[in-house]
Write a protein that binds this DNA or RNA. Sequence first.
RNA 1: GGAGAGGUGGGUGAGUGGCUUAAACCAGCAGUUUGCUAAACUGUCGUACGGGUCAAACUGUACCGGGGGUUCGAAUCCCCCCCUCUCCGCCA
Length: 424
Amino acid sequence: MLQLIYIKDNKDTVLTGLKKKKFARAEETIEKVLSLDEERRHTQQQLDKILAEANNTARQIGQLMKEGKKEEAEKAKSEAAQSKSQSKELSDKLSATEEELTRLLYTIPNVPHPRVPEGSGADDNEVVVEAGEKPFLPATAQPHWELIKTYDIIDFELGNKISGAGFPVYKGKGARLQRALINYFLDEAIAAGYTEIQPPLLVNEDSGYGTGQLPDKDGQMYHATEDNLYLIPTAEVPITNIFRDVILKEDDFPVKCAGYTPCFRREAGSWGAHVRGLNRLHQFDKVEIVQIAHPDRSYEVLEEMRRHIIGLLEKLELPYRILNLCGGDLGFTAALTYDMEVWSAAQERWLEVSSVSNFETYQSNRLKLRYKPTEGKGTQLAHTLNGSALALPRILAAILENNQTEDGINIPKVLRPYCGFEKI
RNA sequence: GGAGAGGUGGGUGAGUGGCUUAAACCAGCAGUUUGCUAAACUGUCGUACGGGUCAAACUGUACCGGGGGUUCGAAUCCCCCCCUCUCCGCCA
């Protein structure tokens, strides 16, 4: 969530930003936030004063008792009892106000960065880069959901039998190619200075709130109710939560973590004709990169992450384009997001394979992820960033479709040492 | 799953109702000493929300796993919950 102090000091910027993000009732909400804050401070001042007096009296009573002045002590006691109901009332009011304030703050999305383009939907996203050559496919070319049957490398029917729709079974060279991609992505991340993490795949409620999946996207996660644990929808959740309630030192920056995990998504209500094959799944594999950055450097870090992902796409020889998401299409918590899409030649459409975002302090405020500046007092919120590097199924789809030939599918050169074969 | 023990600052760990404003030690930071390192010594050393100030100094409140209660006063007593550890059982 946004920092209260930021809203107070930058009211106009916040309002402009929220409008860009198509957040309805921006003025109304911000005014309410500011007046609640006013009320909160006023109440706290009153309460603090009463508590200070009460603490004083209590100390005096202790002193009187010690000196054996019982009568005086009794008198003081009855006085103290009076301020009690008063303080109870005030502290109830304080927590009610704070609660309402927090609840309201949770409903306000992050403010977009100035570089975010205006717009209301996917059509308004800015194409930053388009690179690579779209392959020319033979007339016999098949979409990946046919190819996987032809070569018997991914089996949806089997997954259907074991689990249900959206849980494919990877077989033989399909499984090996998948494993090759994971290892390749991890090795590249390590080479780029990321620390490899193998996090838990089930997380508790606190972690769900920490990265913002709860309470809003409750229905999107698989929930093991017996133990009140959630299957992770992305490695972002466990990895970022490593830093929940953490105060870093300034020279701890940059913190770079990468992890491979399966990801589980219920994708409630989002199935349709356009999500055939590997395009959308309940379980899929992904390598995620996460950075915790100094606020002054987070946009450099974002560009660094973007370059890292481009590097992967280029080495995989996939045509790609990069979108700078417009205000209306930007996620709730992001300040700036690049979507990376690869060209899927047989489907003749772009597939999103990565999304890199700077959340600035939006996540860290909720996580209480701070750092101590070397100069000066106190703590400051760090910036968090993450991105997929990369999500496997659509990459796999694009590799299969783009590299198909009359006599098999060519494996990109960079993956061959990892696969142990050159062709499917 | 059964039984027991326990959750206190960055760490170790004291603290059974009021000289606790959380001792002491370690680590950290600053300084002194020093040819350098080490050691020693001195000082400093939590977080959040307020007040105060140009900024500080200073100052109020809350926080000893979480939530409630008893009391003038709770780390300490009571209730509920969560978690960790040990042993047993089960098990890759």
